[in-house]
């Protein structure tokens, strides 16, 4: 496209945005409201997803080895474990390693437990990883019946509940967001339709003297794009501010529970781009949708 033509299209779009000031304002506000909600929702969702992912990776089955088992029997158990369906890896952890890990995680309280060094009550264990986290339950049950196994432990219940919660939250959120986004598309489409009706004559004449559809469409495309992007400005800043508070206030408390949030910069950069992108798509979609019917002359 020639620069001159682009200038004309820009000029046309801004003129009509200004002329329909209140409708423009209404559509931009609608986009803003939807994107604010979308942004907050995604902020929570992304973090839940990450936390769930972290926990997923931590999900393991601990197989306690009978204290009386000899090293030959232990090796036999290991090869048996490797043959169980869905077991991805089998790692041995001696009672001494187990104790060291435990003492380390205690941090400053470690001295209280120093006595344990003398008489270690922990058993040797095999740590199993399953190929997928949902398989832990089934693997644990199978392993229980093997010889020389004194006990099997895994994050019973909590794992299942976590996944259930994340799934439900995700589905509800997606439905809500799609509804909101459609409302915004509809409002933008309506605004643009108003400007088109006012310029119907013009389009008719353009088509008559041989303007291409693309040429007719450009100003409306720009209008939609502009409204969409304008609507994403407030949500982007709001998300930055909210996440700033959330991240710096919560992450301290949460890290004591071994939960780590998505870093501030990563989150805001990605989410901002995403919101601007969604805004742009909503705007363009709405505008091209409403202009289509008027091109059939």
């Amino acid at each position: 496209m020639k620069l001159r033509t682009l200038k004309r299209h820009l000029n046309e779009s801004f003129k009509s945005l200004a002329r329909n000031g209140w409708m423009t304002f209404a559509s931009v506000s609608a986009v803003t409201v939807s994107l604010v909600l979308v942004g907050l929702f995604l902020m929570v969702m992304f973090n839940l997803n990450k936390i769930a992912g972290d926990i997923e990776n931590d999900v393991q089955v601990r197989v306690y080895i009978d204290q009386s088992a000899t090293s030959v029997q232990q090796n036999q158990l290991e090869s048996n474990l490797k043959q169980v369906k869905n077991v991805q890896s089998v790692t041995f952890q001696s009672k001494q390693q187990g104790l060291n890990n435990l003492l380390q995680s205690m941090g400053s309280d470690k001295s209280t437990f120093q006595d344990l060094q003398k008489q270690n009550p922990l058993p040797n264990v095999f740590i199993l990883k399953t190929s997928r986290p949902e398989q832990t339950v089934q693997v644990a049950q199978q392993v229980k019946s093997l010889p020389y196994v004194s006990d099997v432990r895994y994050g019973k219940g909590t794992v299942e509940k976590m996944f259930q919660f994340v799934n439900i939250a995700r589905n509800v959120g997606i439905v809500l967001i799609i509804g909101l986004l459609f409302t915004s598309v509809f409002l933008i489409a309506n605004t643009i339709k108003l400007t088109i009706v006012a310029r119907r004559r013009e389009i008719e004449i353009m088509k008559l003297v041989g303007a291409t559809n693309a040429f007719v469409r450009w100003p409306y495309f720009i209008e939609g794009l502009f409204m969409g992007i304008l609507g994403s400005v407030i949500p982007v800043f709001l998300v930055m501010i909210v996440y700033h508070f959330a991240y710096y206030n919560l992450s301290g408390n949460l890290s004591q529970m071994f939960i780590r949030l998505i870093p501030y910069q990563t989150m805001t950069a990605n989410l901002s781009l995403l919101l601007i992108g969604i805004g742009a798509i909503i705007g363009v979609w709405g505008s091209l949708n409403s202009v289509r019917k008027f091109l059939k002359i």
Binding site: R4, R8, V209
Partner: peptide, 23 residues
């Protein structure tokens, strides 16, 4: 079928502008 908000000159020029004639 003239555009009421454009002058005589602009109405005629419009037909050439939308087919991207040079100014």
């Amino acid at each position: 079928r003239l555009l009421p908000k454009l002058t005589v000159y602009e109405n005629v020029a419009f037909a050439l502008e939308v087919i991207e004639e040079n100014p």
